[in-house]
Design a protein around this nucleic acid. Sequence first.
DNA 1: CGCGAGCGTGAGGAAAGCGTGAGGATGCCG
DNA 2: CGGCATCCTCACGCTTTCCTCACGCTCGCG
Lengths: 224, 224
Amino acid sequence: MKLLIADDDPQLVRALRITLAAHGYEVVAAPDGAAAIALAAQAHPDIVLLDLGMPHLDGVQVIHALRGWMTAPIIVVSGRTGSADKVEALDAGADDYVTKPFQMDELLARLRALSRRSAPAESGEASIAFGDVTVDLVAKAVSRAGAHVHLTPTEWRMLEHLARHPGALVTRQELLRELWGTDQVSDTGYLRLYMSQLRKKLEADPAAPAHLLTEQGMGYRLVV
Amino acid sequence: MKLLIADDDPQLVRALRITLAAHGYEVVAAPDGAAAIALAAQAHPDIVLLDLGMPHLDGVQVIHALRGWMTAPIIVVSGRTGSADKVEALDAGADDYVTKPFQMDELLARLRALSRRSAPAESGEASIAFGDVTVDLVAKAVSRAGAHVHLTPTEWRMLEHLARHPGALVTRQELLRELWGTDQVSDTGYLRLYMSQLRKKLEADPAAPAHLLTEQGMGYRLVV
DNA sequence: CGCGAGCGTGAGGAAAGCGTGAGGATGCCG
DNA sequence: CGGCATCCTCACGCTTTCCTCACGCTCGCG
């Protein structure tokens, strides 16, 4: 998560940089509006932290300029507490407005709230594909060569679990616990049966599976 | 734009309702947490305005409950100014936190900022079509081969929910929560009945549905 | 070359889930 | 008060799914 800080107060920037870096953010900083715009264009930050009281270029103008081409959330940090200033900044395109002085944990929480909302829009790992099969984890739908494939609930849950860990080995215990809520390792007859049916529905040659692989003595693996 | 206000102060609710209605919002209100959850399930608000200090159910619990199934932005309005309260609410899933007393124009600006950001994510199609049936989600009207089809309220809400997620599997829990606001998984007699009636009205052959499909053991799916 | 362990797959019965007709309960409106 | 639309309950028969059982196959190993 990359963060652009635009503020002309070196001490505040220093404090922010240390705290934010400690919380896993990558931080870049600019001391005035013009530099902030240039840096945003170059570094593509995920979130912008923008001070309103910078020299040479009004904060609202900076917001307008940024909003001209980027959609990342903008949090305004300002000493002005009047509602007119807040309204102006928010309507210019800011997503949040925090007044100085502020508690660091509140700023961090607001950062989390914004990144939480913008994250799913950007990187939706909602579906995975292997061979001519696509698995849509949100719609709970499976298609093969464009045609919808019908799965029973147990088949689906089994495939879903494998698809959520593509490439990883999934042990039999894990699948049993996931599908039947039991830790019984006694008989694994179910697994063999349902894996067989999945392969019949999804593999070109069920006898020689290319993606739903067996790891003898361990479990199963979905390779994409 | 529909707004849900959850607050136990009748005077504040009244003031908010008047101001927000004057700015073009459709307003529904609930006096406590449980009612807010039920109303949210029923009314599909675009934004939720949530007071933290309500009786019977903690505001944070309400946020968790809402976040379990809906993604609309939540603005917390609270008299508590401590950063710990803010962090807790934001991390529970709230999108913004405004402290009382607040300026109405600031709240309006924050509403605009949130709706601006969530609008493109949520905006689905205004109407969808399958077979010889057209579902107009804005006008709440259904036509088949050009002729208007009359649906009862429950039938409509069921179809609407399916139509808003075309191709996706909709679980029975989801529909029950949507139509009856309950988490009862006990008996699903309603669903079977209303689906039967929908098919009679919309499918060429109700016995062999082509679009309103059953996924045994899971739920229903509308394929276009 | 025989053998046992692990795996794949077909068949079939039991159980759960589903569709639908009939009809009572409820609320609305003239 | 009576007609009407809607919601919901109940019961029955049918379909799908689940799971057991049995058998054949592959592969590593002595």
